[in-house]
Amino acid sequence: MADPTQIGSLQIRNVSKFFGSFQAVNDISLDIQNGEFLTLLGPSGSGKTTLLMMVAGFLDISRGDIALDGASIATVPAEKRNFGMVFQGYALFPHMSVRDNVGYALSVRKRPAREIRARVDEMLELVQLQDFADRKPGQLSGGQQQRVALARALCFAPPVLLLDEPLGALDKKLRVEVQEQLKDIHRRVGTTFIYVTHDQEEALSMSDRIVIMRDGAIEQVGTPKELYERPVNRFTASFLGKSNFIEHAGKAFALRPEKIDLHPGNSHADARLRGTIRSMTYFGSMQRIIVAADNNTEIEVDIDVWRNPSNLAEGARVDLLWEDTAAVELQSG
């Protein structure tokens, strides 16, 4: 088997997908580095799953080309692409034991039984399921099934691993835990991960780069920090994290709620806006304050609870302050 760290770069060139007259993916081009953790993030209907299915080979490409390390794979059938995939709902084989599920890819490649056994043990150790090798998927919890799916997809050392909303079925607390494990596994196996999700927190916490998609097209590509700090348009700013939108001198700006300071009273010399506190919601680590500004907009402000001056209360007059760099100018769209 090839060393997965040496291969696994993917070139997506002007790819489009039509279903009848409906265009699900619209002329997407994207370069994915080997070993990268890349997330396709977007609301449902944004074409992210369609794009993933074309990479996996389950959907034909209507126009354009997809290449692995420079060689086109557009006409290679799914079973010959050697891409690992973790499916939504896991799609484990319900009639097989965990061991047989994980070893399936090697078994259909007719590898010797001893090699399969050793490799499966190694994979089960990676996902910490050594004690569950003989169980059936139906006897496992959701989180365990998810790990079996991951081990199964990685067992044949694929150059690229595709993950289609793999955490969608897990509850919130477990999701955070599995995110950590996924990141850890990515670091250890070094395979290129292409991860599809509509959950912005997942995307932010795990990805090397995020591709934000809407209506079959790419809105913005960048590291989580770039996207969060420098959203190019309104859609990106509101889809990834929360944002206030402010008009100034005919231009639109995005302003993150945590970058605004509140000052009680209306006396601060540097106040950019003045307003009245409409509501305050307590979230433990921070509180969200909605201010009805005097220019008839609503501004959301997140402030640390411990910094809350005691005289902030609903109905109180406040000044809003922020640094020059906090407001990001947006393109229209």
């Binding site: 996996a56 080979g57 389950f58 059938p77 799914a78 079973e79 010959k80 692409r81 050697n82 891409f83 690992g84 995939m85 499916f87 939504q88 709902g89 799609a91 484990l92 084989f93 319900p94 399936y104 890819a105 259909v108 490649r109 199964r152 997809a153 044949f156």
Partner: peptide, 18 residues
């Protein structure tokens, strides 16, 4: 039968017959 299970088998390299 979940079509995704069939897709999973293909994705793991199994031919149609397998």
């Amino acid at each position: 039968i979940d079509q995704r299970v069939m897709n999973a088998s293909r994705n793991l390299g199994a031919s149609g017959t397998q």
